[in-house]
Amino acid sequence: MEKLFFLIFAVIAIVSAIGVVSLRNPVHSAISLMVCFLQVAALFILLRSPFLAAVQVFIYVGAVVVLFLFAVMVLDLGKERFGGYLHHQRPIALVVVIGFVFVMGFTILHGSLDAPLGNYTEEALVKNTEIMGKLLFTKYVFPFEVVSFLLLIALIGAIVLAMKEKR
Protein backbone atom coordinates (compact mmCIF):
# COMPACT_ATOMS: atom_id res chain seq x y z
CA MET A 1 0.00 0.00 0.00
CA GLU A 2 2.77 2.44 1.03
CA LYS A 3 4.75 1.47 -2.05
CA LEU A 4 1.83 2.30 -4.30
CA PHE A 5 1.46 5.73 -2.76
CA PHE A 6 5.21 6.28 -3.05
CA LEU A 7 5.08 5.38 -6.73
CA ILE A 8 2.16 7.71 -7.39
CA PHE A 9 3.78 10.62 -5.60
CA ALA A 10 7.18 9.99 -7.18
CA VAL A 11 5.84 9.82 -10.72
CA ILE A 12 3.77 12.97 -10.32
CA ALA A 13 6.75 14.77 -8.75
CA ILE A 14 9.08 13.85 -11.61
CA VAL A 15 6.57 14.70 -14.30
CA SER A 16 5.78 18.06 -12.75
CA ALA A 17 9.47 18.75 -12.28
CA ILE A 18 10.08 18.11 -15.95
CA GLY A 19 7.18 20.43 -16.58
CA VAL A 20 8.88 23.18 -14.59
CA VAL A 21 11.97 23.16 -16.74
CA SER A 22 10.33 22.53 -20.10
CA LEU A 23 7.16 24.60 -20.19
CA ARG A 24 7.52 27.93 -21.97
CA ASN A 25 5.02 29.94 -20.05
CA PRO A 26 6.52 30.93 -16.67
CA VAL A 27 3.08 30.85 -15.12
CA HIS A 28 2.66 27.22 -16.17
CA SER A 29 6.07 26.47 -14.81
CA ALA A 30 5.17 28.01 -11.47
CA ILE A 31 1.96 25.97 -11.28
CA SER A 32 3.95 22.84 -12.13
CA LEU A 33 6.44 23.72 -9.44
CA MET A 34 3.62 23.95 -6.95
CA VAL A 35 2.42 20.45 -7.90
CA CYS A 36 5.92 19.13 -7.40
CA PHE A 37 6.17 20.78 -3.97
CA LEU A 38 2.88 19.18 -2.92
CA GLN A 39 4.15 15.74 -3.90
CA VAL A 40 7.28 16.27 -1.86
CA ALA A 41 5.13 17.25 1.09
CA ALA A 42 3.18 13.99 0.66
CA LEU A 43 6.46 12.09 0.59
CA PHE A 44 7.41 13.77 3.87
CA ILE A 45 4.29 12.27 5.39
CA LEU A 46 5.34 8.86 4.06
CA LEU A 47 8.62 9.49 5.88
CA ARG A 48 6.70 10.08 9.13
CA SER A 49 7.39 13.81 9.24
CA PRO A 50 4.04 15.55 9.33
CA PHE A 51 5.44 18.74 10.74
CA LEU A 52 7.84 19.10 7.82
CA ALA A 53 5.05 18.33 5.40
CA ALA A 54 3.05 21.17 6.89
CA VAL A 55 6.04 23.51 6.75
CA GLN A 56 6.65 22.49 3.15
CA VAL A 57 3.09 23.32 2.20
CA PHE A 58 3.05 26.60 4.08
CA ILE A 59 6.35 27.95 2.94
CA TYR A 60 6.90 26.52 -0.51
CA VAL A 61 3.39 26.27 -1.79
CA GLY A 62 2.02 29.17 0.18
CA ALA A 63 4.88 31.61 -0.03
CA VAL A 64 7.52 30.72 -2.58
CA VAL A 65 5.29 29.80 -5.45
CA VAL A 66 3.10 32.79 -4.81
CA LEU A 67 6.19 34.95 -4.83
CA PHE A 68 7.19 33.49 -8.17
CA LEU A 69 3.79 34.14 -9.59
CA PHE A 70 3.90 37.71 -8.34
CA ALA A 71 7.31 38.19 -9.92
CA VAL A 72 6.09 36.85 -13.22
CA MET A 73 3.15 39.16 -13.17
CA VAL A 74 5.03 42.21 -11.97
CA LEU A 75 7.63 41.80 -14.68
CA ASP A 76 5.07 40.85 -17.32
CA LEU A 77 7.43 38.28 -18.80
CA GLY A 78 5.07 36.43 -21.08
CA LYS A 79 6.31 33.56 -23.24
CA GLU A 80 9.91 33.28 -24.22
CA ARG A 81 10.62 33.58 -27.91
CA PHE A 82 9.89 30.46 -29.88
CA GLY A 83 12.92 28.16 -30.26
CA GLY A 84 14.97 30.47 -28.15
CA TYR A 85 13.91 29.38 -24.73
CA LEU A 86 16.68 26.82 -24.40
CA HIS A 87 20.27 27.77 -23.87
CA HIS A 88 22.65 27.20 -26.78
CA GLN A 89 24.91 24.94 -24.68
CA ARG A 90 22.25 22.23 -24.50
CA PRO A 91 24.17 19.31 -26.14
CA ILE A 92 27.04 19.54 -23.71
CA ALA A 93 24.72 20.30 -20.83
CA LEU A 94 22.62 17.22 -21.58
CA VAL A 95 25.70 15.01 -21.74
CA VAL A 96 26.92 16.37 -18.43
CA VAL A 97 23.55 15.97 -16.72
CA ILE A 98 23.13 12.41 -18.00
CA GLY A 99 26.67 11.65 -16.84
CA PHE A 100 25.76 13.08 -13.48
CA VAL A 101 22.67 10.90 -13.24
CA PHE A 102 24.66 7.82 -14.11
CA VAL A 103 27.43 8.53 -11.70
CA MET A 104 25.16 9.33 -8.80
CA GLY A 105 22.72 6.54 -9.62
CA PHE A 106 25.55 4.04 -9.70
CA THR A 107 26.77 5.35 -6.37
CA ILE A 108 23.32 5.05 -4.82
CA LEU A 109 22.62 1.56 -6.11
CA HIS A 110 26.03 0.02 -5.58
CA GLY A 111 27.47 2.23 -2.92
CA SER A 112 27.20 1.89 0.79
CA LEU A 113 24.61 4.62 1.16
CA ASP A 114 21.93 2.25 2.45
CA ALA A 115 21.15 2.57 6.11
CA PRO A 116 19.27 0.17 8.40
CA LEU A 117 15.65 1.02 8.99
CA GLY A 118 15.22 2.31 12.47
CA ASN A 119 12.23 1.51 14.70
CA TYR A 120 10.72 4.72 15.91
CA THR A 121 9.01 4.88 19.18
CA GLU A 122 5.31 5.36 18.94
CA GLU A 123 5.73 8.70 20.68
CA ALA A 124 8.06 10.07 18.01
CA LEU A 125 5.55 9.20 15.34
CA VAL A 126 2.48 10.50 17.10
CA LYS A 127 3.96 13.52 18.80
CA ASN A 128 6.29 14.45 15.96
CA THR A 129 5.43 18.12 15.96
CA GLU A 130 5.75 18.44 19.70
CA ILE A 131 9.17 16.83 19.74
CA MET A 132 10.42 19.02 16.90
CA GLY A 133 9.14 22.13 18.66
CA LYS A 134 10.90 21.17 21.88
CA LEU A 135 14.12 20.47 20.04
CA LEU A 136 13.99 23.75 18.15
CA PHE A 137 13.63 25.77 21.33
CA THR A 138 16.09 23.84 23.47
CA LYS A 139 18.94 22.10 21.73
CA TYR A 140 18.82 24.08 18.49
CA VAL A 141 17.85 27.44 19.89
CA PHE A 142 21.03 29.13 18.75
CA PRO A 143 20.78 28.12 15.06
CA PHE A 144 17.12 28.97 15.30
CA GLU A 145 17.95 32.50 16.39
CA VAL A 146 20.58 32.82 13.68
CA VAL A 147 18.14 31.72 11.04
CA SER A 148 15.47 34.11 12.26
CA PHE A 149 17.99 36.91 12.08
CA LEU A 150 18.89 35.79 8.57
CA LEU A 151 15.23 35.97 7.61
CA LEU A 152 15.02 39.49 8.95
CA ILE A 153 18.04 40.47 6.87
CA ALA A 154 16.54 38.85 3.77
CA LEU A 155 13.28 40.69 4.38
CA ILE A 156 14.95 44.08 4.65
CA GLY A 157 17.32 43.25 1.76
CA ALA A 158 14.49 42.28 -0.51
CA ILE A 159 12.60 45.46 0.28
CA VAL A 160 15.66 47.62 -0.33
CA LEU A 161 16.49 45.87 -3.59
CA ALA A 162 13.00 45.95 -4.98
CA MET A 163 12.31 49.54 -3.95
CA LYS A 164 11.92 51.99 -6.77
CA GLU A 165 14.98 54.10 -7.06
CA LYS A 166 14.53 57.69 -6.07
CA ARG A 167 15.19 60.08 -8.83
Binding site: H87, Q89, I92, A93, V96, V97, G99, F100, V103
Partner: peptide, 12 residues
Amino acid sequence: QHYTLIMVAGVV
Protein backbone atom coordinates in the same frame (compact mmCIF):
# COMPACT_ATOMS: atom_id res chain seq x y z
CA GLN B 1 25.49 29.08 -17.10
CA HIS B 2 28.88 28.33 -18.59
CA TYR B 3 30.34 28.47 -15.15
CA THR B 4 27.60 26.28 -13.73
CA LEU B 5 28.13 23.77 -16.50
CA ILE B 6 31.85 23.59 -15.76
CA MET B 7 31.05 23.18 -12.09
CA VAL B 8 28.69 20.24 -12.66
CA ALA B 9 31.12 18.68 -15.12
CA GLY B 10 33.75 19.05 -12.41
CA VAL B 11 31.56 17.20 -9.94
CA VAL B 12 31.09 14.38 -12.43
